[in-house]
Design a protein around this nucleic acid. Structure first.
Lengths: 344, 344
DNA sequence: GACATGAGTGCAACCGCTTGCATTAATGGG
DNA sequence: CCCATTAATGCAAGCGGTTGCACTCATGTC
């Protein structure tokens, strides 16, 4: 049915190997022959069959991209950037959604392994051990994770979380809640680690709530817990949860940022558009997608280039954070200035 | 390197064809042999190479999914649903982003053609003729387009646009603007057609603004045009534009829905979260993704099943639409009731 | 003029797997 | 007990390419 290398060979009166070389090693064929072959190929609409080629070369020109949830607004910009970068290098990209399920991640990597040159594991939920094992079966680049010996693109969420907590403490908040993300998330652990030490250094109390599903609903449902904990400020695992949380807080009668300040992480497009506009830690997702693809493609050539790329994050202050009840906050109208009013 | 059918054959002491049949035609092999082969395969970690298999069977178990812009929030739910449905049938999915570029669409379809069982063209921008031609090279299902002879999943945006315009007219609006989408969009034409006739039937004036890029910025930049046209209500090609438009209107000092009512189309997640919450025509994107995959896979078997699936849409009334200046609207406090106040 | 050289091409094996056909052994009918 | 069936397996060709090797001719060199 489809036109093959043989058809082109017949049409141009050369052996199939010459046609093959015309495409994959042009310098080996006489310019005249080459142009004749190309003309016939063009005219017949010939396109090399990549799968067949891969069978012998081992290069598929495909990349697997595995994410926890396509519909989570964090991922689309990453996928878009990765796809674009991949195509720049003439690669196509498989996308798989694992629904936050570690077992599914493993299964998908294995299923894809044979037909890709490598796999991008974005925010994986599986164990390090398993990832290391898989990386022996297929070249792997992990995004949002750090594992020795495995090429990785990591965003500095720890630094972001630190700045977020410092921001909150600077506003006078002393009781802060951390709404953490899903089990198995490296990012979530980083955030917790960083937020914990920053809070301690700033003499603030940090209540950890979680793990939670990293969705709007996940945020919405912990609103009560946040209030019960008496927190006046919250750092959420991601923007989606922060937005859900704000909804939940409003529903419970708490004002944002009047009663509770909320900071998210990711700076998804949404966050500029909600009311109040979300204060958040911006992560360079598109850059992460591009870098990950670059690493994977570079990695293919010289083995053991297990570089780790680190990308900066940035705290974007908008309208969901405001002064807390601490010593630096303006006194409530009805309040009496307490004697010796300077707390430690 | 990787374990092949030969390794399994050697280990189990049978010919490779028996191993092959164990996986692709189990009923042809003796149960004892089969279980022995399976055991060895399992132990060696054997996985059939799909590309090699495809070479001879012609079935790749891959699907191509082509969208105009992954980052447009309309698409992720569709992609997610399609991917999930595809995997249910043991298929993997290639995702390609064409950046609204018709030429790129063609190129990508051709590039993918050989390694997929079919392609889902979502909201294509190319011409019908070209699509028909491509559908001769690879099985195609189009989403958001109708072409005779080509299987399609179409959402009833025309009906949605009609209900949206009727809603606006019912609120008393008589000068309505239609902010249309990108050139080449079937959806955009459907909306225009439907909105035009509905407006005419309702004695309202419809100003068409566009074509425009279907993005937030696309909406933002037409805010001025909308005001200049003197419209008190707008139907936008999609939610993203509607949201951008609202931003633009607010920036220009116009209140929504006080001065101008805005209706979007799609009901992306965002639309529930902005202020004001967007009135919009909800389109069943996930269902579309699922159906498209189903059609593609069904289509493979019996040729010429060029069914067209139609999916209903629904007008969701939220806070971005309000009474217009028409006869049914409450009089402005400062207004004098005009004599003979009933306009036609 | 003999010979090494290298450019250009053909030949054939092979990548991992499927499948039509041949072969063999076991089964049942007459 | 012989023969026709049938079940199970092996054999080998082939899917669409790539690639090491051998071969054929100009060339250039001495």
């Amino acid at each position: 049915m489809a036109v093959t290398i043989r058809d082109v060979a017949k049409a141009s009166g050369v052996h199939i190997s010459t046609v093959s070389r015309t495409f994959s090693a042009p310098h080996l064929v006489n310019p005249n022959t080459r142009s004749r072959v190309l003309a016939h190929a063009e005219q017949l609409g010939y396109r090399p069959n990549r799968a067949a080629r891969a069978l012998i070369t081992g290069r598929t020109y495909n990349i697997g991209l595995i994410v926890a949830d396509i519909a989570n607004p964090f991922f689309p910009p990453l996928i878009k950037a990765a796809e674009s970068q991949a195509r720049k290098h003439d690669h196509h990209i498989f996308v798989a959604d694992t629904n936050e399920d570690p077992a599914l991640e493993e299964e998908v990597v294995r299923a894809l392994a044979k037909q890709v040159d490598g796999v991008l594991l974005c925010s994986p939920r599986m164990s390090n051990t398993l990832i290391e094992q898989l990386s022996r079966e297929v070249p792997l680049v992990v995004v949002n994770r750090q594992i020795t010996g495995i090429p990785a693109v990591a965003m500095d969420v720890a630094g972001g979380a630190r700045r977020a907590v410092e921001h909150l403490i600077g506003l006078g908040h002393r009781r802060i809640a951390l709404v953490s993300g899903p089990r198995g998330s490296w990012t979530s652990r980083e955030i917790r680690r960083s937020a914990t030490s920053t809070a301690r250094a700033g003499n603030a109390e940090l209540t950890i709530i979680g793990p939670n599903p990293p969705t709007e609903v996940g945020g919405l449902t912990v609103a009560e817990d946040v209030l019960r904990a008496g927190a006046t400020a919250v750092l959420a695992y991601n923007d989606l949860m922060a937005i859900g949380l704000i909804e939940g807080l409003l529903a419970a009668g708490a004002h944002v940022p009047g009663d509770v300040s909320v900071v998210g992480i990711d700076d998804i497009m949404l966050s500029r558009l909600t009311r109040p506009k979300l204060t958040t830690v911006a992560t360079p997702t598109a850059a992460a997608g591009r870098s990950a693809v670059d690493m994977l493609l570079a990695h293919g050539d010289d083995r053991r280039t297990t570089a780790h790329v680190h990308l900066q994050t940035e705290l974007v202050i908008r309208d969901s954070t405001g002064p807390g009840p601490g010593p630096h906050s303006p006194a409530d109208p009805g309040d009496v200035i307490a004697p010796g009013g300077v707390a430690s």
